[in-house]
Design a protein around this nucleic acid. Structure first.
Length: 527
RNA sequence: GCAGCCGUAGCUCAGUUGGUUAGAGCGCCAGAUUGUGGCUCUGGAGGUCCCCCGUUCAAUUCGGGGCGGCUGUACCA
């Protein structure tokens, strides 16, 4: 005997966490955004390229050390020949594979861009998903800092083309060689110190979040978080901490301030000026001055100076091209991607405050970033191939644009809906739909057997600009009734009385059947 | 990964000191209105009270475990 029938089917309609569906409005908004970005990149001479979502795991370089299993953060599976395949987790590693595979056929330097979904198998959070879109641009085959400068300028142009005002974003630039020089200066050079170096870099990276005081703890004994957990520190001496903090402060030991940088940044950036604030003298330098200042802080360190030379090139090129330090800013506290970057690194940060649903003021922070990775292609070819590139987090940026009102959150205009008044006339209704479609007008016949009221509600919900009504009265007169839903909604706002509402027929008019297309076109043109 | 909070209708949430039939608002469907979107009124549909185990005569309620969500922290190619 079977059990009583279950009320619900066994399969739950649900999505794994970290994945989202996208509706028509969001797709339209993001597509417009992608078009804008693409336009800027094309203008800079970058060309499109696309690679698949799946690669051999070893091509992505993500096997766990000393194991034959892929990194757990990567979605991986075995092909029927038992080779490991993975979903790409960024667009850079696949590009390196592409360039290595087609090296001889590509022009050098090779400028390319592409957009696509990437996948990360890790805990999602607000604004963090397991599938999300990136938009990358890379220049392969040029070791010149000019290539890095070009990408920084392109990043700035992109933000402004997307409607983000100057001053609401900043492209912050640093150089891994400079950071490496600082590590050497505090005695953390050499491979035996790789672990502590990482701790120090991570601490510097937290400057944004915690401020210099907490960073000092992370550089020293460690830091207690809210729950009382201790985050282990780098165990540096006070002297070493002083060197690091002086460095991230731009090389000026007299204005080291142990406070949250988000507060500091609220002060307007002024080019080469001084000001007195809370009794302390502040300097802010143009990019070139910042580099000179830094240069004096560790004058003996070769790697440090070499990195600064590259930053100086970027500073003078961007200044020469008319970009101010408000747009492209040399900033010694930028760390970024701890693994494969070898030279200039940069990130785009949004600086305007946003009030979230809970009424809290938050910042979007970094929405794009990148840097030079001269070693990535070498994994495939043996020889080093210089490359630099950067990546926009499309979903994050889209959320930011939405809060600025720069991303069309409006529901897309729906099709003209032809109501079905008499079931035996659907051939004629279908004919009207075809006429409209032939004229390039989105249109559909109502599908279903509901009453007229339900059909109107449907049209309303579809955001239809108009409905077409033909009952027996209109048919006998050889006419159709065209109702302008947008104008009708407008007119209805003044009607409060039910009888009046029912009696009135706002914003609708009769037209000869033969003039249907022309009248609809006219109506739509008025939008 | 670690810590804290949370899980009742499509949504936002009440409620049950463990006891017949678990509620509201919004939303949805229908009618009032031969063929007109809103408002109003009336009616209707919709729930394994997250899952499993335990305690109990009895668990949506108490305990344990799991799963899921949120927040902080860690990590982030």
């Amino acid at each position: 005997m079977s059990d009583a029938p279950k009320k619900k089917p066994g399969t739950l309609a649900r999505l794994p966490r970290g994945f989202v569906d996208r509706d028509a409005a969001e797709i339209a908004g993001v597509n417009a955004m992608l078009d804008t970005i693409r336009g800027v990149y094309e203008l800079y001479g970058f060309e499109a390229v696309e690679t698949p979502a799946i690669e051999f795991t070893d091509a992505l370089g993500k096997f766990l050390p000393d194991q034959d299993r892929p990194n757990e953060g990567v979605f991986s599976f075995q092909d029927d020949d038992e080779q490991w395949l993975s979903l790409r987790y960024d667009l850079t590693a696949p590009l390196a594979r592409y360039v290595a595979e087609h090296f001889d056929a590509l022009p050098k330097p090779y400028r390319s861009y592409r957009a696509g979904y990437v996948f990360r198998n890790e805990k999602p959070g607000p604004g963090r998903f397991r599938q999300f879109m990136q938009f990358d641009a890379d220049t392969v085959g040029s070791a010149s800092p000019a290539a890095d400068a070009e990408i920084c300028m392109m990043a700035a142009d992109t933000m402004e083309k997307l409607g983000i005002a100057r001053g609401d974003y900043v492209v912050r630039v640093n150089n891994r060689k400079v950071l490496d020089g600082v590590m050497e200066a505090i005695g953390l050079g050499g491979s035996e110190n790789a672990g502590r170096r990482l701790t120090v870099l991570r601490a510097i990276d937290k400057l944004d979040k915690f401020g210099a005081g907490e960073v000092a703890r992370l550089l020293g004994p460690g830091r207690l978080d809210e729950s009382g957990d201790l985050t282990a520190g780098a165990d540096l001496s006070d002297e070493q901490i002083g060197i690091v903090l002086t460095y991230v402060n731009g090389g000026d030991p007299t204005t080291v301030r142990f406070e949250s940088r988000s507060r500091v940044r609220e002060r307007p950036l002024v080019e080469v000026s001084t000001r007195i604030d809370e009794g302390i003298l502040f300097f802010d330098y143009g990019n070139w001055d910042r580099v000179q200042r830094l240069r004096r802080s560790l004058p003996e360190n070769e790697k440090f100076l070499q990195g600064l030379e590259e930053l100086e090139v970027i500073a003078s090129l961007s200044t020469g091209a008319g970009y101010s330090p408000r747009q492209i800013s040399i900033d010694p506290s930028v760390v970024r991607g701890l693994e494969y970057y070898t030279g200039p690194v940069y990130e785009v940060e949004l600086t305007f405050p946003v009030t979230n649903e809970d009424g809290q003021v938050v910042r979007f922070g970094s929405v794009a970033g990148g840097g030079r990775y001269d070693g990535l292609v070498a994994r495939f070819r043996g020889e080093e191939v210089p490359a630099t590139g950067f990546s926009i987090g499309v979903s994050r940026l889209a959320a930011a644009l939405k809060s600025l009102g720069k991303l069309g959150a409006a529901k897309p205009i729906g099709p003209v809906v032809v109501l079905v008044m008499d079931r035996d006339q659907i051939a004629e209704y279908q004919r009207m739909v075809s006429d409209l479609r032939d004229a390039g007008i989105r249109a559909e016949m109502y599908l279903g057997a509901s009453g007229m009221k339900a059909q109107m509600k449907y049209a309303d919900r579809r955001n239809a600009p108009a409905v077409i009504i033909q009952g027996s009265n209109e048919r006998e007169a050889g006419e159709v009734m065209i109702k302008d839903l947008v104008a009708g909604a407008e007119a209805a706002k003044t009607i409060t009385d039910n009888a009046e509402w029912r009696a009135s027929r706002p914003a609708q008019f009769a037209a000869k059947r033969g003039e249907l297309v022309a009248k609809i076109r006219e109506l739509l043109a008025g939008r």
